[in-house]
Simulated scan of single mutants.
Amino acid sequence: MRLPHLLLSALLGCALHLPATAAPMKLADYLALTGPQPSATVRYGAAPSQYAELFVPAGSGPFPVAVLVHGGCWTEEFGGITQLRNMAGALAARGIAVWNVEYRRVDEDGGGYPGMYLDMHAALDTLEQQASRHKLDLTRIVAVGHSAGGQLVQWIAGRSRIPQDSPLYRSRMLKVERIVSLGGLADLRNEAALIKTSCGRDSAQLAGTPTASRPDVFADTNAAELIPNGSRTWLVTGALDTISPPRVAHDYARRAQAAGDRAEVVILPDASHYDEVAATSPAWPQVLNVIERALDLPAR
């Protein structure tokens, strides 16, 4: 059926005024992300990268808390904490306090194994120390990590299962059972080839080298070895993510579910690896919804 001329002209005119769909973000777009300055910067160690940024919302609290751990292929080259201020500011505007963690990466003194993991311990210990001063509610806490940071937050969930003979073992720690992994590269053993292709990282850089006393370097570093741990994980991945494709999220979810933990995959349509962490991205409402669900916040 042929549309009348006037109707066809009207439809074409409307189409010309529709907003263009945002193109998937690239690395340069990610590196350009900015956000507000933190309420406070708190050191948890003497090294330059041993600090966290605290974002406290307006109001009297107590505030739920999102611990943010940036990615960047475990290297200084690709930014990290500054870019996550974009997400931190958006979360604080929603009444969620943010603990934005910097840490020693593999190309920094003391980074890699065990320093990078010890930094996660120390950053969370320091968060506990700051909680009462800033009216932070640590009974409502979620750890949110992107890419390499996804590996670290998924590891955080399994800290209680680290063997006692490991230098990473702690008898007491802040319990963080809600995890949001954004394009996470968490399974160091099973995804070693992908991690090498996507980030150029070898297992030895992330998990150390075998020794007589530590023959299996994944026993205390690999999130997939530290399940079940009672956690609930949301594996959020852009449909167009080529660094950590959706297949990675589905594979990890199956392993966690088979072990008895709760894991849910959320795929962001038309989103890249970098859209996953940008509050300016069309994917942000879906990411925000997952974070607020993880904190058991009411729908708005």
Rank of each mutant, 00 (worst) to 15 (best):
V265F: 03
L185H: 03
S213I: 09
K175H: 15
A239H: 06
N229G: 05
G200D: 08
L185N: 01
D241T: 00
T221C: 06
I195C: 09
S213F: 08
W234K: 09
L174Q: 14
E276N: 11
D251N: 15
K196G: 08
R262Q: 15
S181C: 11
G208S: 07
N222R: 05
G238D: 01
L268W: 01
A212F: 03
D187V: 07
V248T: 12
T211M: 10
D275E: 06
E177R: 10
A249R: 05
T221D: 07
A253V: 00
V217G: 03
L235R: 01
I243D: 02
R262K: 12
H273P: 00
S244W: 05
T209R: 14
R254Y: 01
T209Y: 07
Q205M: 10
L226H: 13
R172H: 12
D261H: 05
P246Q: 02
R201M: 14
Q205P: 08
P246G: 02
F218L: 09
E191L: 14
A193C: 06
H250N: 08
D270C: 00
L185P: 00
R214E: 11
G238T: 00
K196E: 15
V236S: 02
A249S: 15
E191Y: 04
A186P: 08
P245F: 00
A224R: 04
A258S: 12
R201Q: 14
P210T: 03
L194C: 12
A212D: 15
F218W: 11
D220L: 08
D220T: 08
G183S: 10
A223D: 07
Y274H: 13
T221H: 13
D220V: 09
S181R: 06
D216L: 11
P228T: 06
A207H: 04
C199P: 12
